[in-house]
């Protein structure tokens, strides 16, 4: 039997023919990185290959590394295997990886979403034979509302808090979600303040993406100055002493997990906005359909349930592979904190 083009081993997703890994979770020689979230771009590889806009992001996170930047759709060949990166729409500079060898095409989605969020390069369906897809939200319970509506709610929430003399604190992962929030906040309501982690990452991507002005909160930022404005902070800031200086304030989280009433209550957050950087149920199914694939491998999320559905209801040859992204995801609290 011939060896599959991509296999899942203890280090990551591996292409033996090219001796290249994708999003490896243990140090390897050569690794293609789909995007800058911590569970996909790990430390310690000898050589990184990623989208050019992702280069400054992972350099910011990992320090001085040896990295090559590629354009969308630019092909590069390693030992007769042709690779190319295609927009995944997950966060800024996030890619899917297309792998072709002797006419056989595989695509690994990394993390992706199908909705145009106005910031990340829009998801591009790529024809393939085998589709390795994430399914973080692979349950029919997940259906996203168009983001215009969600942002209308978020901006209304901010305006109401301001009227009541309260500061709004909005939690979102510092890479990706935070910039998406910044992009669509209505700055006619007030000023946007940022937590250091958000500010630093935003500064890194500003040269490539058009984002509104933000003000970093420092020790000298006074309470009066912030009042009625909005603060964008990473979820880890929730419940920290850092946050107490904003009293009176109201908290909200923007995440796909906010679909569940239980999730918001568990975190004791005042308001939950359902806003995700992953595909919802319909998004996953339409993406699969658009690839024209025959085989599917599910990783990352409700893999067993989703692959059973693909097999039994849609007739695909679908199976599940365990990855280390999934390990991280199985912890509920973490899920709510970050959707990387």
């Amino acid at each position: 039997m011939k060896q599959p083009l991509l296999v899942f081993n203890d280090k990551g997703i591996y292409c033996e023919q090219a001796n290249v890994y994708i999003d490896a979770w243990r140090p390897v020689d050569k690794c293609i990185i789909t995007h800058g979230h911590a569970d996909h771009s790990r430390w310690g590889h000898k050589q990184y290959i990623t989208h050019k806009n992702n280069v400054p992001i992972i350099k910011h996170r990992l320090g001085e590394i040896s990295v090559t930047g590629k354009d969308w759709n630019e092909t590069f060949t390693i030992n007769s295997v042709t690779f190319s990166l295609h927009p995944a729409g997950h966060i800024i500079a996030s890619s899917q990886v297309r792998v072709e060898y002797k006419g056989e095409v595989w695509v690994f989605t990394g993390d992706f979403k199908t909705e145009d969020d106005g910031l990340a390069e829009v998801y591009q369906p790529v024809k393939c034979h085998t589709f390795i897809t994430e399914c973080t939200f692979g349950l029919p319970a997940f259906k996203w509302t168009p983001q215009e509506e969600v942002f209308r709610d978020i901006n209304n929430w901010w305006a109401t808090n301001k009227e009541e003399g309260k500061t709004s604190i909005l939690f979102g992962y510092s890479l990706g979600k935070a910039q998406r929030l910044l992009k669509h906040l209505d700055t006619s309501i007030g000023k946007i303040y940022t937590h250091g982690a958000v500010e630093n990452m935003t500064e890194v991507v500003r040269p490539y993406y058009d984002l509104p002005p933000t003000t970093l909160i420092t020790r000298d930022t006074s309470k009066e100055e912030i009042k009625g404005n909005i603060v964008v902070a990473p979820p880890s800031a929730h419940g920290s002493t850092w946050i107490r200086r904003f009293v009176p304030y109201v908290t909200a989280s923007a995440s796909g997990w906010m679909t569940f009433r239980g999730a918001r209550r568990r975190r004791a957050i005042d308001r939950g906005f359902v806003l995700s950087d992953h595909a919802d149920w319909d998004g996953l199914l339409s993406a699969i359909d658009a690839t024209g694939c025959e085989k599917i491998i599910t990783t990352h999320g409700y893999t067993d349930i989703f692959s059973r559905y693909l097999r039994e209801e849609l007739g695909y040859d679908a199976r599940t592979e365990k990855t280390q992204y999934e390990e991280e995801n199985s912890e509920t609290e973490k899920k709510i904190d970050n959707e990387d």
Partner: peptide, 27 residues
């Protein structure tokens, strides 16, 4: 338009019947 087993799986994860039904019905 989903199979019953998928409903049950979703219910186990959501944890609340009323919520599950509200979520899986078409928007």
């Amino acid at each position: 338009g989903i199979p019953l087993w998928l409903f049950e799986e979703s219910y186990h994860i959501v944890g609340d019947l009323a919520e599950t039904i509200a979520l899986i019905l078409p928007a």
